[in-house]
Amino acid sequence: MIEPVELANFFTVFFSAASVILFGAGYALLFAWSRVSARPRLMPLAYAAYLGLAASVITLGLAANLFNSGFWTFIVLLMLVGYLLAPHAVWHLCVGTHTDAPAAESVKLTQPR
């Protein structure tokens, strides 16, 4: 079911697991901020953070021997796709749930695409 991590890969595993989530947060944060403050110039940075996330996921997959089995490879793919789409989905939800706000309350928001 699982193949334990090699000693030499210990640091890589912990570090990449942490960076998955940190890049994920960075991506989500930059993505949301770019949209909320209408600063499209931030968007490339957000995707750069996603690239960092993707690199971390793959590094984690290699170091933790996840590619040696179909199931764990699937988990890696799930993370790659899921974390890419999650901020988009959540953003749409934010906009969607705030649409019926009275005009006085709403601030200028870039429209979702």
């Binding site: 994920g24 947060a25 989500a28 901020w33 909320v36 403050s37 901020p87 953003w91 709403s106 601030v107």
Partner: peptide, 14 residues
């Protein structure tokens, strides 16, 4: 948790 982060930023802007 990602949802909470995005939402918090959204609300802060709001």
């Amino acid at each position: 948790l990602v949802a909470m982060v995005v939402h918090a930023v959204f609300d802060a802007g709001h």
